[in-house]
Amino acid sequence: MSPHRESAPRSGPVVLPGAPGPDLLHGAILYLDGVTLSFDGFRALDRLSLSIERGELRCIIGPNGAGKTTMMDVVTGRTRPDEGQVYFDRNVDLLALREPDIAMAGIGRKFQKPTVFENLPVFENLELAMKKRRGVFASLFARLGSEERDRIDAMLGTIGLAGERGARAGALSHGQKQWLEIGMLLMQEPQLLLVDEPVAGMTHQETERTAELLVSLAGTHSVVVVEHDMAFVRSIARRVTVLHEGRVLAEGSMDDVQNDPRVIEVYLGA
């Protein structure tokens, strides 16, 4: 457990007071500390502590049930942990916010199962994701400017869906839906992207292009990728975190991690 778990004001406001632990000063974009969560006695997260640097591309791997998706649920506000702290962009207490506020604060999330608005055209999927005022009355009277239209068209080019501009999103192929969802994430202009299994169901070629896209995002964005496909992870990863039974088992470069005896045991042994 980290020393400042006790010192940080649990019930306090979003902004941390002036004496934070050293981790926060290192410019971490996302910071989890001692996060624990149980479902009916099963410990999905067990004092998980994790820190993502600004501009980093981090891959998170681990066997099924290691807590990867649950960790994303906690970060995006879908699930509240039993204890622990989650901070974003140095001083935003994510545990005090609900999902839309977290999204507006600058965290985008791609689901494991590609989730797009199936009955809307591809163009409108991106339009709704575009960073704009999200209020009821703002959207009742919203108009799409020509500059915004251009931005959407540019994004269609980026994700390779320019030809499907007017198609119903539900009619896209699985890989195209994955891209559309990534495109929607980018329209949100987030600082941090949480990407859950982005290449599941993609062809080899699509996978390669996705890898390129994610790598190009790093630097300007911080990206966390959860993936099972080791070849894909190897192709993009600089730093890899291995989760096991709700806690960090190992962290380092792909080679370090792959040679770690504990990791080998988890993946091959038990």
Binding site: A103, G108, R109, F111, L120, A129
Partner: peptide, 14 residues
């Protein structure tokens, strides 16, 4: 209607 969670994670107060 089609993907409530997606809308929520895009920042809409559903």
């Amino acid at each position: 209607r089609d993907a409530e969670d997606r809308a929520r994670f895009l920042g809409y107060r559903v």
